[in-house]
Design a protein around this nucleic acid. Structure first.
Length: 406
RNA sequence: GUGGCUGUAGCUCAAUGGCAGAGCACUUGAUUGUGGAUCAAGUGGUUGUGGGUUCGAGCCCCAUCAGCCACC
């Protein structure tokens, strides 16, 4: 039978660096809408929009590719309609690469009363309660209409924790669905990625990696992680999985992650990430910095006249003070969501740009150590460190009142 | 000036004469293939003021102050 060919898609490895926990990689993905330097962080634009940002602003934060959601767009406005606008690229006026998720995850996380069987999954819309059904073949048709450069197979994302027995069945289904997606895949200008599952079970993860590798997808998603399991378990699962995947194909860790996750997962062989975290926490008042998260709502920032980060080149940091951002957020001004999201996304893309050049320069291991030593997972110390940084930069003047609170 | 109504947390309001509470706001966290959301914990009181009745008063009685309404 005819193997699907992938017109305009390729992956070239440029540099490898061994780490204490795996092999970090830098490369370039070519797509019909342009190339992507990896490791890459993909902002999430669920409903054909990265919340609060325009395509021009996305380019300004160095977004190379964005992710959008089959589940949401199928329900509203409908994939047939989007196809008439020239697919997602034409619909949202974004001419760089797009990746669509299959909707497998959303069916389980957002819809109600979903019922899964070997043939597909029946679910009720979170919008109006109407009943719908996804099968691998149908999801392929929807993703073709959406027209993304990279599309994902329909998979079953199991919750954590769940039994080995259940994951055994779910994995069989996921593998059968992967084959059916491959057979139903038509458009050669869309690269179809398989998805490795298996929860936190070593035997299932490894079997999944081997089974899907044999199916010869142009790239591989790793799903079912960062769903509540301890960090160590996620790391362990990656260490067991990535060595079994084809070296010359990109690996995409789905739904991850935080800044520290990017570092730790690149160290374990991941090339692509997507996560709502930077944009979601931006809308809820957490700004990402080298020292950790800065809770912009806190009264301690009311009078701060510094940017979020002194060395950040984003539109927010080059134009606005923390005190102003504090006011915008408390006043619930729409600009707050936008400026916060711009900074957080640029923070993420800067991290992966630094990771990439560190790998190419052969100093990723020291970069990793220094980043993790400086980055506080909790935001308790962020205010104090911000103040120290300000003093370093300005020496003489009085420090900004970022820690007073009184 | 006369009569009436209302005074309880920052705000809006609960509480048979029996441990003074809720929602919002505020504070501190959480947020990982997105419902601009949600969740968790916490701070906050001389119940307008002064007397009285009662074992016990936010509640009943008297006085007083403030606000609102109506009428001279």
């Amino acid at each position: 039978m005819d193997e699907p060919t992938y017109a305009g898609f390729s992956f070239q490895l440029e540099a490898l660096q061994h780490t204490p926990v795996g092999v970090a990689r830098a490369g370039v993905i070519e797509t019909p809408h342009g190339s992507i330097a990896t490791p890459v962080f993909m902002p999430v634009g669920t409903q054909a929009s990265v919340k609060s940002l325009s395509p021009g602003e996305l380019k300004d934060v160095h977004a190379q590719i964005i992710l959008s959601n089959t589940y949401h767009l199928y329900l509203r406005p409908g994939s047939e309609l989007i196809e008439k606008f020239g697919g997602l690229h034409g619909f949202m006026s974004w001419n760089r690469p797009v990746l669509t998720d299959s909707g497998g995850f959303q069916v389980f996380s957002l819809s109600h009363n979903n019922k899964i069987d070997d043939e597909g999954v029946t679910f009720k819309s979170h919008l109006d309660g109407s009943t719908h059904r996804f099968t691998p073949e149908m999801v392929m048709r929807v993703e073709e209409q959406l027209g993304a450069d990279i599309i994902m197979v329909l998979d079953e994302c199991t919750p954590y924790p769940s039994s080995h027995e259940y994951n055994r069945k779910a994995l069989n289904r996921t593998h059968a669905w992967a084959e059916r997606c491959l057979r139903a895949h038509i458009r050669p200008d869309q690269a179809l990625f398989g998805i490795v599952q298996g929860s936190t079970y070593t035997d299932l993860r490894q079997e999944s990696a081997r089974t899907l590798s044999a199916l010869d997808f142009p790239g591989y998603g790793i799903g079912g992680l960062s769903v509540g399991e301890p960090k160590a378990q996620m790391h362990h699962a990656l260490e067991e999985t990535t060595p079994l995947l084809p070296e010359h194909k990109p690996r995409y860790l789905m739904g991850v992650g935080s800044p520290e996750d990017l570092i730790e997962c690149v160290a374990r062989g991941i090339d692509m990430f997507d996560c709502v975290l930077p944009t979601r926490v931006a809308r809820n008042g957490a700004l990402l910095t080298r020292e950790g998260r800065l809770p912009i709502k806190s009264p301690r920032y009311a009078a701060a006249q510094t940017p979020i980060e002194l060395d950040c080149d984003c539109y927010t940091c080059t134009n606005f003070t923390v005190g102003y951002l504090h006011h915008l957020f408390r006043a619930k001004e729409l600009l707050a969501y936008r400026l916060n999201s711009i900074h957080n996304l640029r923070f993420m893309t800067r991290i992966v740009e630094e990771i990439r050049s560190a790998i190419i320069g052969g100093n990723f291991n020291s970069y990793r150590e220094e980043f993790l030593a400086r980055y506080q997972t909790s935001n308790r110390e962020v205010a104090l460190k911000q103040r120290e940084l300000w003093l370093e930069a300005h020496g003489r003047k009085a420090p900004p009142a970022i820690t007073s609170g009184q």
